[in-house]
């Protein structure tokens, strides 16, 4: 009955992720080289002579063959150097580190909103099957998933900023006159709390709310649907019948027994929708001028600026690996059968 410690599992999973990360390094390198456009010509400017363009190409190392370029990329990567952005002139790693908290804060807050709304909705829809709440839940979630995420964003901006004036202008994480809290975590909500600055907390919450709701609406449907289905399965299972036959209270039956068993597929879905959100981030950040890594990647992509794109894809890959790790750990916490394997 001894269970393996969680740390061993984490270590083995991290080790197992190395091959996929190596694969990501290779694929991003090839894909960014295959992008249309000539970075050297772009960087040298429209008025540059062919000689100047060649000079830039040499500087960037783009005159070498692909294998040599790849080796150089690898050795830089080993030193933590993701190259420099041609458009901003800043090191890519610095920019990614500065922008990552903005993306994560938005995504995690959106996920939290979605979970807080969708999971209770799914539970209610299952326990009161075919009641009005079941139908309302189905309606809301279907509507949410049928709208493209940038459209939801624009619609929310139109209603709550333009028409009603309830929301601040969709221009980033804080309005231009406020200054960011001292950086501890990079999450404005947490940092302003740490700084005990309530005004700043409300200001950043106000900015965060619309884009986060946009993301939440996008992923509520799969979450609510999976919660409902998993709850229905758990509620009709043999062990739920046992708890009913033993006369346990409805609260114990539904929450302590059925819900905890239903959480397993819900956690899987949480991981899945989180990866959807990482993708949707790119669009939402653009719509709300959110200074995250998604917006950064789009700008770089448009400018044929390959180093930030490479860095962005690599960061996303690492996020995916970490995400799957978190889900596995959650699994083994919820389900002792997983921990025992």
């Amino acid at each position: 009955m001894a269970r393996k410690p969680v740390w061993g599992t984490i270590f083995r999973r991290l080790l197992g992720a190395l091959p996929s990360l190596a694969g990501v390094v290779v694929v991003t390198f090839i894909l960014t080289r295959a992008l249309p456009g000539d970075p050297a010509a772009f960087f040298a400017g429209a008025a540059a002579t062919p000689e100047a363009v060649e000079e830039v190409r040499k500087q960037l190392g783009l005159d070498k063959n692909l294998a040599q370029q790849f080796l150089r990329y690898l050795s830089e990567l080993a030193h933590g150097d993701l190259g420099q952005s041609l458009t901003t002139g800043q090191p890519v790693s610095t920019e990614l580190v500065n922008r990552l908290p903005a993306s994560l804060e938005l995504t995690l807050f959106g996920l939290l909103l979605a979970a807080v709304v969708a999971i209770p909705l799914g539970v209610l829809a299952a326990t009161r099957r075919d009641s009005w709440i079941d139908h309302v839940s189905r309606l809301i979630t279907t509507a949410g998933v049928s709208l493209p995420v940038f459209f939801t964003g624009l619609l929310l901006i139109y209603i709550f900023y333009f028409k009603l004036g309830w929301a601040p202008s969709p221009m980033g994480r804080l309005d231009p006159y406020a200054s960011a809290p001292a950086t501890v975590t990079g999450f404005f909500i947490i940092d302003s709390l740490l700084a005990r600055d309530l005004g700043l907390l409300t200001a950043s919450l106000k900015q965060l709310l619309l884009p986060a709701i946009t993301m939440a609406i996008f992923v509520m449907a799969p979450l609510a649907r999976m919660t409902r289905a998993a709850m229905l399965t758990a509620l009709s299972s043999d062990y739920t019948r046992t708890t009913r036959a033993m006369g346990l209270s409805r609260y114990t039956v539904v929450y302590r027994y059925a819900l905890r068993n239903a959480l397993l597929p819900v956690v899987t879905t949480l991981g899945m929708v989180f990866s959807f959100m990482l993708g949707a981030n790119v669009l939402v950040e653009k719509v709300f001028s959110w200074p995250g890594i998604g917006a950064y990647a789009i700008e770089a992509l448009v400018a044929s600026d390959y180093a930030p794109v490479q860095g962005f894809v690599l960061t996303m890959a690492i996020l995916y690996v970490l995400l799957n790790l978190v889900i596995d750990v959650l699994y083994s916490i919820i389900d002792p059968r997983m921990a025992a394997q």
């Binding site: 299972s237 043999d238 062990y239 019948r241 046992t242 708890t243 036959a245 033993m246 302590r256 027994y257 905890r260 068993n261 919820i334 389900d335 002792p336 059968r337």
Partner: peptide, 16 residues
């Protein structure tokens, strides 16, 4: 009145 069921493994909550 108490009841016991067939297939006892499924009749017990697997994760409690």
């Amino acid at each position: 009145i108490a009841m016991i069921f067939q297939n006892p493994r499924a009749a017990l909550n697997p994760i409690r």
